[in-house]
């Protein structure tokens, strides 16, 4: 396990040396906060809180899909990856290190959203609510991390970049992250319950405000998580089998 932290440390070091990568994953949620949440819901305590929760889910989705989808695809393309396999550690530390460093990047991308919410809106949350909300975000990130891993293991980098975007945007909009939690447009109300982004964000809403998640979204979140998990395991095994059989 210590080796997993070593891997995470050096992966973060590599990421930090090209800071634009972190700026990129922190930029969109922060920009969306400034352009949509602050002017339209900033003065409304409940609205601002819920919208901030949505934006944090947005940040978590984008970092999980991109860091894992594109990151894993890039690693697989480098001869460094097979070299690491010759070290006396096996594949686990590398894998665990990637998850840990992904979580760290995710945390960093949440900071600007939290700061904007705290200083520029009337959003409010108790300490317990905040911690519960962060836990809900971590839980909600799982299906997207798994989807990202799946994409990363089955596709080359260029394809992964495109596919991750194609997955990300409809899920974010369709799940209702950019619209009102209680009164969304009709087509979003129709499709949202079947998307994992909805189930995930409902957990966060429930953690920070007065919101009860619906059973259908919870069931669909579980279904997506299991399906994405199965796909990620399949992709990982297939990749191992092709490259290291």
């Amino acid at each position: 396990m210590a080796l997993a932290f070593t891997h995470a440390k050096y992966q973060l070091l590599e990421t930090a040396r090209i800071p634009i990568a972190i700026v990129g994953s922190a930029f969109f949620p922060a920009a969306a906060m400034l352009f949509f949440v602050v002017p339209f819901a900033g003065d409304h305590p409940v609205g601002a809180t819920m919208a901030t929760a949505s934006m944090m889910m947005f940040a978590v989705m984008s970092t999980s899909l991109f860091t894992f989808g594109v990151g894993v695809a890039e690693d697989r393309a480098q001869p460094w990856d097979p070299y690491l396999r010759t070290l006396p550690a096996g594949a686990f530390p590398r894998f665990a290190g990637r998850i840990l460093s992904g979580l760290a990047v995710m945390a960093v991308s949440l900071v600007p959203v939290l700061l904007i919410a705290a200083f520029l809106t009337k959003a409010s949350v108790t300490v317990g609510g905040l911690l519960l909300g962060l836990a809900a975000l971590a839980l909600g990130s799982v299906p997207f991390t798994l989807l990202g891993l799946f994409v990363g293991y089955v596709m080359p980098t260029k394809a992964a970049v495109a596919v991750v975007q194609v997955i990300f945007f409809p899920m974010a909009v369709g799940g209702g992250l950019l619209t009102s939690p209680v009164d969304p447009p009709a087509f979003i109300a129709a499709i949202a319950p079947y998307l994992p982004s909805r189930g995930a964000v409902e957990l966060v809403w429930a953690a920070v405000g007065d919101f009860s998640p619906r059973p259908i979204t919870m069931v669909m979140l579980a279904v997506w998580t299991l399906a994405a998990g199965a796909a990620a395991v399949w992709g990982y095994r297939r990749d191992e089998g092709t490259r290291f059989a």
């Binding site: 050096y10 460094w80 070299y83 010759t86 006396p88 096996g90």
Partner: peptide, 29 residues
């Protein structure tokens, strides 16, 4: 993996992690 504790292998130099420093790369390995 335990059997590989006493061997050393050369990576292909095209794959070395570009952003790491030489000393860090050695420490990492």
């Amino acid at each position: 993996p335990a059997q590989r504790r006493l061997i050393g292998v050369t990576p292909q130099d095209t794959g070395l992690p570009q952003a790491l420093k030489v000393g860090e790369c050695v420490d990492f390995v």
